Amino acid sequence: MPTTPNGTVWTKRTATIDGVGETTFSCPDAKLSDPATPAVLFFHGAGGTSDQMVALPAFNGMRDMLLDEGLAIIEGDPLPIPFFGTGELRPGQQWCNAQSRAAYPAFHQYWAARHSAANEVRFLFGRSMGGLLALYLAAKHPSYADAAVISNSGVSTWRVGNNTPPVGSVPPVAERSTSRHFTKEVLFGAWGVSDFASLDAALADADVLPELWPEGVFAGREVAFQYGTADTTAPWFPRGGEAVLERWSSSLGALSRVDRLEGGMHGGSPSSYQQVPEVRAFVREVLGEAPIPPAPTVYHRVIAHATAIGGKLHRLT
């Protein structure tokens, strides 16, 4: 039975839902039957798996913290997409398409029907690509109208800049670092289109462009962003939260926050995977719990100076 370093015993459960995808539910054993257990619905990054939060070593600290705080974790991976041009099926690359927008609520409902701890999703946690889906469900799905959002190096806009074409439709340059996941083969496959004009129209029709949502879309809601200043995959601007935060900041809830990690990268070390204390503080504030007190300061008073000679202490004067 897995146990966190702080002694929380937990169990990982997996399932395959026909026509939907694979899903994982991880919960402290002591909380499994408690309907008051707050749950996290986690959305993995590009190329991620149905158990990224609990299985990816880089996320071990985050996983253990959430479980120690008494939260249940729901995650999954919708059905793979056909890679544009070859038809090869690619898991973990859904990019907020219709399939993924339906799959994650289905994952939630699947586990809620079986375990009381999965009933109430209090946090939508998006990592990288998953940031788009976390924002979408928070804004558009009635089941998550009160959920707080955690965007961990999350992609928050499809654009390479305000009001410019979708990412992938322009050549990658230093200011617009385009990762391998922002390619037409992936995006066209995820959205079932064959050119960028069609992709642009599909994104607009599906209303999945956070940068175009009303300024008050998250009025009174709690949203936390974590990002690294050296992240070139989902940089704070233009792909991270800066562009959308400019529109929303005046109406967000009082607990909303932006935590910046100097020198933090998208992966590796240091990175936003490791911004565990910041996420813990946000979770505790949203749940109305007392913050973790700082470590006590220990003072040592020097009462004498001595040296050891021949196994004996001799006082120095």
Rank of each mutant, 00 (worst) to 15 (best):
H44F: 09
S128A: 13
T8P: 10
V9G: 03
S272A: 12
L137V: 13
T297Y: 00
M62D: 01
A204F: 01
V149C: 15
H181I: 12
T4Q: 11
W248V: 12
R284F: 01
G228A: 15
T157D: 03
L209D: 13
D29M: 05
R122Q: 05
K312S: 06
L67P: 06
W158C: 06
E211T: 13
A243H: 09
L313D: 06
A138V: 14
A118E: 03
G76R: 07
Q94K: 09
H300V: 11
A190K: 10
A295D: 00
S128Y: 08
Q109N: 09
H181G: 07
S249R: 14
G45Q: 08
C27I: 13
G45F: 02
P105G: 05
T16H: 12
L287V: 08
A103G: 10
G311A: 12
G76P: 12
M62F: 05
N163G: 11
L89S: 09
D64M: 14
S50H: 09
S153K: 14
A304M: 05
P210Y: 01
V276R: 07
L313M: 10
A224F: 15
D259S: 15
V54F: 02
E215M: 10
R101T: 06
T157P: 05
T24K: 01
A117Q: 04
P28V: 05
H305S: 02
F237D: 07
A102M: 13
A243S: 11
K12I: 04
V208K: 05
S100I: 01
E285Y: 00
V217K: 15
G310L: 06
L209A: 03
A39Q: 06
A306N: 02
P294H: 00
R221L: 15
E75M: 03
N152I: 15
H115N: 06
R284A: 01
I150V: 15
D207R: 07
A98G: 14
H141D: 15
R301L: 07
P57E: 02
L79G: 03
K31I: 05
N60D: 11
I292W: 03
I309D: 01
E88M: 14
D51G: 02
A206E: 13
P291W: 09
Q109T: 06
D205N: 11
I303L: 02
D29K: 01
G76H: 11
M265T: 12
P294Q: 00
Q99Y: 04
F43C: 12
R101A: 08
V286G: 00
L66E: 07
H305N: 08
G76S: 13
